[in-house]
Design a protein around this nucleic acid. Structure first.
Length: 231
DNA sequence: GCGACAG
DNA sequence: ATCTTGTCGC
């Protein structure tokens, strides 16, 4: 087992976090019908990373799902997840843009944005590197929170860091465990919540992230899938 | 000091 | 994330 000095990584995170731009509610990126949205997820087999990227329009149209096999070069450390996964995600985003010509207006990442101890989740890393508006949506919280969440779809309670609202505990389906939403770059928390809720039509997880998750799983198992192309 | 800790 | 059985429900 290799011990890693996370104190140096914390310094790097704090520096990079200064490049992150989060807008107040009502400002920054707001989705429009023609906008193309990229949503990504990864399945690991050891250090082999099977990455999938869903392409859809905000209007709902599915344009395709793309994948690539990459190798993770950084181990998973809680709070430092971005150093492992962001480079992998960025590689596929750039490859898909280059090979298909799709220009994403928004990226949706499986993980946190600024709802992170040093305001630098994986969605922030991807955002500042691509300079594309980015939202993070995680299945587990990284910041502690208190309060009672309403049982109905759309209920949410804020996630605070040093008295600042940095994210939301958002219920996407009635009576179902919530997800944890935050802005990653160039958008607002309000838009992040609205986008995730709007795209979570049937299940706890939003449709594009579910498709990416499913595609990455099939890809990792060598199973074929319609609309899926390796880039 | 001890526990908790995205994927 | 992954390792894992049966089971419930659409």
């Amino acid at each position: 087992m290799e011990t890693i000095d996370t104190s140096q990584l914390e310094i790097i995170q704090k520096e990079l976090a200064q490049k992150v731009v989060i807008f107040e509610n009502g400002q920054g990126y707001i989705p429009e019908n023609e906008d193309i949205i990229f949503s990504l997820d990864v399945q690991y087999v050891g250090e082999q990373a099977y990455v999938a990227l869903d392409v859809m329009r905000w209007s709902g149209e599915l344009l395709g799902i793309f994948g690539s096999l990459q190798v993770a070069t950084f181990s998973y450390i809680p709070q430092f997840f971005s150093f492992r996964e962001a480079p992998i995600l960025i590689n596929l985003i750039k490859a898909v843009q280059q090979k298909t010509g799709f220009k994403p207006a928004l990226l949706i990442i499986d993980g946190h944005g600024i709802a992170h101890p040093r305001r630098f989740g994986v969605a922030c890393y991807v955002g500042i590197e691509t300079q594309i508006p980015t939202i993070g949506c995680a299945k587990e919280p990284l910041l502690r929170y208190e309060g009672n969440l309403g049982n109905e779809r759309g209920s949410y309670i804020p996630l605070f860091l040093e008295n600042e609202e940095v994210g939301s505990v958002l219920r996407t389906q009635n009576g179902i465990k919530p997800v944890f939403v935050s802005a990653g770059h160039l958008t607002s928390l309000e838009v992040a919540n609205q986008v995730i809720l709007t795209l979570s039509t049937t299940y706890r997880i939003s449709e594009p992230l579910r498709r990416a998750d499913h595609a990455a799983r099939c890809y990792a198992k060598g199973e074929s899938l319609p609309n899926f192309s390796i880039v």
